[in-house]
Each structure stands twice: as structure tokens, then as C-alpha cells.
Amino acid sequence: MELLCLEMDTIIRARPDPNLLYDDRVLQSLLTIEERFLPQCSYFKCVQKDIQPFMRRMVATWMLEVCEEQKCEEEVFPLAMNYLDRFLAVVPTRKCNLQLLGAVCMFLASKLKETRPLTAEKLCIYTDNSIRPQELLEWELVVLGKLKWNLAAVTPNDFIEHIMRKLPLPEDKLELIRKHVQTFIALCATDFNFAMYPPSMIATGSVAAAICGLQLNSTNHSLWGDNLTELLAKITNTEVDVLKACQEQIERVLMNNLREGRRQQQKQQQQEQGGQRSKALDDQDQSSTPTDVRDINL
């Protein structure tokens, strides 16, 4: 009996393949094809009438929370956002269908990337049953058609290892850096300003932001000094100025997100204190955790 329980939770993962990760031709191919998977236009200006940038943010934040809670593989969320942006760049969509679209995109990305993908039923529950599994499956077909079945899009996550292995990083920090880079990439995916950026640039900017944020560049000063940006720019053929701007933009988005998250938290606490004192204990317990997580993102 107990043995069965142990078996259930094993997730079988392939080891990193050195033939893929340590071959520069792979990186060059990724750089060559990445532009093919960008959305065709800045769709809030030219395609969409009913939906606005803040709604994309809402649905993106919800999608990220679902992926987090379901412990999806890291690339599922950025890939799902790629599908969402590509669909919205060609199909005018009404606001009330946006969450359905988000669920469909997660459904597809999860099936492409995971050994145990999210089920339609689970995703529908996360929409508070505002959509039905049947509808999810129907729209899956529509979205697939609009994406021309090109699902294996290049994401920023594809570049992480290629970039990191070319940097003189301390061995014991690699896991931490990787985590932070993935976090920054997810953050970028929630922000429409990054939707038209090539994935390699987002990846490079995220690596730069992670290394600077962890202040690894100051301790390892002798290794690269101020040349981190230049080194990074060379790896992915990005211009130094553009990369610097991208890094700063990522850091700004992070600050804004955290500030907003903190503000929401404070507002809630104030409401709790000023309002009804007679509330049940478990309610107060909830208030001490950030119940409104939409703007924290991570």
C-alpha cells in the first residue's frame, strides 16, 4: 500500500542532454528561428477592440498562479503566453472569452511540455467552472488552427542553459541563479511590453538581472568586472545598449510588481483592522497572508 503511494509522485524527467546543451549549433538555430514564433503585431492597437492591456495582465497572472499551484514545468507558462499572444494578434476576442483562451493555451502548452499534463477538468475548476471541459476542447481546436499547429515555439527558457554555461559562475550558485532567471522570465511574460521582444533578449536580460540582483557581479569582479553585459550581448548577438535597456526594464517591472503587491497587502490589513472586529479567527489568519496575489506574480 505505502509503496504504491511512493510510486505515484515520481515524475520521470530526462537528464539534461549535453549533445543539445553544449553544442553551439543548437544555440545558433534557436536564434535563427525564434522570430518565427513572435506575435505578428502589437495587437492592442490593431486587432483587439474589447480587451485592454490590463486584462492581459489579469489573465496572465491567473495563468501563472495556476501553473505555480499545479507545479507545472517552468516553460509551460511562458509557452502558454506565447500561444495567447499569437492568437490575439490574429483573432479579435471578447473580454468574456479571454479566460477560456488562457485556459486553452495552458492546456496546450502543458500537453506539449509535461509528462503529466493538466487536465481539462482541472483547468475548468480553476476558472471557477465558468467554462466547461467540452468548451475547452472545442476551442483547443480553434486555437490550434490559428497557430497553424506550430506549437513548438522557442521560449526564453530554451536559452537559459546556453547562456549560463558560457559565464564564469560559481558552481554552488547555479541552481539559485537558474531559479531567479526563470522567475524573471515568468515576470516578463505577464507584461505586454515584452511580448514582441525576441525570447533570446528576454533570456539574456533575465540572466543579467539575476546576476546583478544576487550581486554576483561584484564578488566576482575580477572575472568580468563591468563586462557582464558585453559578454552576455555577445552570446546571443544582442546589442549592448538594447540589452542594458531590457535589463533595466525587467528590474523596473519587478519593483512595480512588489510595490503593488505590498500595497494590496497593506490595504487588506487596514480593512481588517478598521472593519469588523467580530470576524472569525480563521478569517484573520487569511488576512495575514497575501490573499490578493495577482500583483506579486511569483
Binding site: 486584462m55 489573465v59 491567473w62 498562479e65 479571454l98 479566460q99 480553476y126 476558472t127 471557477d128 490573499t291
Partner: peptide, 8 residues
Amino acid sequence: PTRRSLFG
């Protein structure tokens, strides 16, 4: 809180 309907 993740379980929610976003746009009605």
C-alpha cells in the same frame, strides 16, 4: 484564491 472567474 487561484480558483476564480476573471471576467464574469
